[in-house]
Design a protein around this nucleic acid. Structure first.
Lengths: 138, 138
DNA sequence: CAAGATTGAAACCTCAATCTTC
DNA sequence: GAAGATTGAGGTTTCAATCTTG
């Protein structure tokens, strides 16, 4: 009758994916949100303003303020002053932060296996193509 | 090279789905979480203990305590004493709660259209089959 | 002691308001 | 005034501890 996938089923799948990620990240002392931030900082190479971090993580700035607070408390990130602009605060990875990011990458790969392990290669490619169409909204 | 591209894409899609739901629910004065609770209560027909509500929503009981607090503050749900078991508290829909649930159903259908509108019928069927495999683990 | 529910603390996220600096 | 960041308040979720009742 209804060709449209139930939102319920999609939400259940999304929840399963997030649960797998959180579980794997917890095993290396991280969370999904913390890992994403470390990943962006590592890809940036140099310290970047918190506003840019918010942009690349697609969230509001006040979220980053608090996330960086927690990362700083964990010793994974440090805030620096920007000599060019005294309004800005730059976030930079510590040694421990770089190590945590690498552990997080391994954890993320494990989560991917947890989630997509039941799918054939063809199914995984199909799924990737389809979710791409869902995400490309507005 | 590409570490975990599929998970990224799936997470983006999941976020898009949740954002569409929250946007549509906000337009009728609800949230995704509140609507799910109202929906379960409506399907139950009779007042049910908070613990059963937690079970059907697949979350911990303390979450329900707070969610029902907010629903009660909104005038959509009421707590009743259970004459059979004085430990239990029964949640029941108010008149306004029933009306809000119906508005939420319409909003959910709109969100579904927002999210899956860009897919062909064949793609929607494929997606439905695939997300079923992702969620059905363990 | 088990079961039902609540409380307190914390992570994660958003919005509106504010503060400093440009 | 506008930009960068923070603060305060609230929503959603989890966990551990607690309280009452069975």
């Amino acid at each position: 009758m209804n060709d449209v996938p139930s939102l319920d089923a999609v939400l259940r799948a999304a929840h399963a994916v997030e649960a797998a990620i959180e579980e794997r990240m917890q095993a290396v002392g991280l969370s999904g949100a913390k890992f994403m931030a470390l990943k962006v900082l590592a890809e940036a190479g140099d310290p970047i303003p918190l506003g840019q971090l918010a942009e690349r993580l697609q969230c509001v700035k006040s979220n980053i303020t608090q996330l960086v607070d927690r990362l700083e408390a964990d010793g994974l990130v440090e805030r620096q002053s920007d000599p060019r602009d005294r309004r800005a605060r730059l976030a930079t990875l510590t040694k421990a932060g770089t190590a945590a990011m690498r552990a997080g990458r391994t954890a993320m790969a494990a989560a991917e296996h947890d989630v997509f392990g039941g799918l054939t290669g063809a199914e995984a490619r199909q799924l990737r193509a389809l979710v791409g169409k869902v995400g490309a909204r507005e």
